[in-house]
Write a protein that binds this DNA or RNA. Structure first.
Length: 578
RNA sequence: CGGGGUGUGGCUCAGUCUGGUAGAGCACAGCGUUCGGGUCGCUGGGGUCGUGAGUUCGAAUCUCGCCACCCCGACCA
């Protein structure tokens, strides 16, 4: 492709709304343009990358035995009423009405449609196991779309749905997808990690998320230094912490005027934060609870909700909090003598001689011991793990924390949809049975943004070879010099003959502009045809990812370029998986 | 939804406080110059100042309503 014949509207300055690297760079490199909040047009350069991701996903899904289908983007409301999600999905579901006042939605996901297909077409155990996938535009009316393509409202997603007769078979289907996902992300040249995930309110037995590791990731990931354990911070747990005993003196009341925070109390009493217990009042559908955590630990609301058996826990604002505690100000709450039901984090089981609020304004208690000063509470896992916590799986491993961008999710659904929507097949004995399902998503468009988050520098994008819109960019140093033009055209032809996608910057512009744009677009290998090198009959060849520029004789240029591309691959994809 | 912010040529912004002829840089078109890291100069085209109402002799500027977008908190690929 010649630069003069393709629309690549690069920007010297990014629009103000873009703050994250991938969003800025995609706009600056002319890959995308916004049309509204969270909706984008893919321009030729961006689309080339998107198609590359799509092709990798398609190849690996096919190889894993899944069958491609394409389901409607617009779906009738009746299906969603049948599964119960028309009322429960909430405002994220974009609802439409047709000319006959019939209700539809723009599909945010396709469990209902695939289940409907399955109940019509699947009749016998002989047809199972079976796995359907599609690569489709979805729409989720996100509360707050942000980060450009990363969290758009409209996005391209690969979703797959498996149907199996029994748990053992589902396990195999799940495993096949898990492995296909590892291959997909590895082929995309991404540094990623599969992690155990919270299954959320949908339930289901088992779930893994695939995260691209990047400092700007929205999710926290804990992983073990020694074994395979890795989990979303929402779910990650720790092995029991070593017991701590700070004092065997009698419990004592201390005046602590105005010392409301753990930090302030710790300084005032001269005690480590680990020796303090913080008491949080939370509101739930089952009423208020007092939750206890070690001073340096943070509440994990998702775990808390699970432990209390409620859909959600809400941390009230101070005014409401005081109301719930009967007037005791936040900051001085404590478990001794409280009237609220108490649940303590497991880390407190081995903690004794601690300090906590006195359940009275401007006072704390020190030297508090379980059983002596207050009854043993109910214990549950309530906290978010910290770096350095002991691994829950192995002996001696420590957890470390990373940020990740969720690009894939594999999920065992069980019979949630197959039962409610009535899929029935006959088994070997001729009995009616309900198949169980798995679902498997990949954020295809999100991968493009995630790849940039992970692969860029101050000057622009640095594409992994597998995703690059062009493997090679040739800069024509001087379009008015016949010798330079001939050289560029020759290289262009020969490299394309080797099956490479090549971008030839033939614009009538200064070389400086072409260098800047080439850095921005991030093709893995860059050649300069003409200029200094050509005076010696040579071509300049450079790798975008920090390689030194070399000069090669014209006759060797293709071979050197190919070797450089090989070198790029070596530095790219890295499986961080088990 | 709650809180904060911004809307002025395609982009980045000044002008708004203190009402009085709509500006700059980049981008775009033409000419010249330069030619290995966004050269320099001249000329030119392009703006209902988000939108509706109000105040005023006069509104980008003041008042009120609305809309859009961005940023910070609870969901998800």
């Amino acid at each position: 492709m010649k630069f003069s014949k393709i629309l690549i509207p690069t920007l010297k300055e990014p629009p103000t709304e873009a703050h994250t690297a991938s969003h800025r760079l995609m706009l600056r490199a002319g890959m995308i343009r916004p049309l509204g909040a969270g909706i984008y047009t893919w321009l030729p350069l961006g689309l080339r990358v998107l198609r590359k991701v799509e092709a990798i996903v398609r190849e690996e899904m096919d190889a894993a035995g899944a069958q491609e289908v394409l389901m409607p983007a617009v779906q009738p409301a009746e299906l969603w009423r049948e599964s119960g999600r028309w009322d429960h999905y909430g405002k994220e579901l974009l609802r439409l009405t047709d000319r006959h006042d019939r209700e539809f939605c723009f599909g945010p996901t396709h469990e209902e449609v695939i289940t409907d297909l399955a109940r019509r077409e699947l009749k016998s155990y002989r047809q199972l196991p079976i796995n359907f996938y599609q690569i489709q535009t979805k729409f989720r009316d996100e509360i707050r779309p942000r980060f450009g393509i990363m969290r758009g409202r409209e996005f391209l997603m690969k979703d797959a749905y498996s149907f199996d007769m029994d748990e053992a078979s589902l396990e195999e289907s799940y495993r096949a997808m898990y492995e296909a996902y590892n291959r997909i992300f590895r082929r995309c040249g991404l540094r990623f990690r599969p992690v155990e995930a919270d299954t959320g309110t949908i339930g289901g037995s088992f779930s893994h998320e695939f995260h691209v590791l990047a400092a700007s990731g929205e999710d926290g990931i804990a992983s073990c230094s020694q074994c395979d354990y890795a989990a979303n911070l929402e779910k990650a747990s720790s092995a029991p912490l070593p017991p701590l005993d700070f004092s065997d003196l009698p419990m004592r009341r201390v005046e602590t005027p105005g010392k409301k925070t753990i930090q302030a109390v710790s300084e005032f009493l001269g005690m480590r934060v680990e020796a303090l217990v913080k008491s949080l009042v939370v509101e739930t559908p089952n009423g208020p609870f007092l939750l206890l955590l070690r001073g340096d630990h943070e509440l994990n609301p998702i775990k808390a909700a699970a432990a209390l058996g409620v859909a959600q826990v809400v941390i009230p604002d101070p005014a409401r909090g005081a109301e719930l505690t009967g007037g005791i100000p936040i900051g001085f709450l404590g478990p001794v003598g409280t009237t609220l039901p108490v649940v303590a984090d497991e880390a407190l089981a081995g903690l004794n001689g601690f300090a906590c609020g006195a359940n009275a304004a401007d006072a704390h208690l020190t030297g508090v011991r379980w059983e002596r000063d207050l009854p043993k509470p109910r214990y549950a896992d309530l906290r978010t793990v910290l770096a350095g916590d002991p691994c829950p799986r192995c002996n001696g491993g420590q957890l470390s924390l990373d940020r990740g961008i969720e690009v894939g999710h594999v999920f065992k659904l069980g019979d949630k949809y197959s039962k409610s929507m009535g899929i029935v097949v006959l088994d070997q004995e001729g009995r009616e049975r309900t198949p169980i399902m798995g679902c498997y998503g990949i954020g295809v468009s999100r991968i493009v943004a995630a790849a940039i988050e992970q692969n860029h520098d101050a000057n622009g994008i640095i594409w992994p070879v597998a995703l690059a819109p062009f493997e090679v960019e040739i800069l024509l140093a001087n379009p008015n010099e016949p010798e330079a033009v001939r050289t560029a055209e020759t290289l262009y032809r020969e490299l394309r003959a080797r099956g490479l996608a090549v971008l030839l910057d033939d614009r009538d512009d200064r070389l400086g502009i072409k260098f800047k744009d080439a850095d921005l677009l991030g093709c893995p290998v860059r050649l300069v045809a003409g200029g200094r090198a050509l005076k010696e009959g040579k071509v300049e060849i450079q790798t975008r990812r920090g390689g030194d520029a070399v000069q090669a004789p014209l006759a060797e240029a293709v071979a050197v370029t190919l070797a450089r591309l090989e070198g790029c691959d070596g530095r790219d994809g890295q499986e961080m998986s088990a």
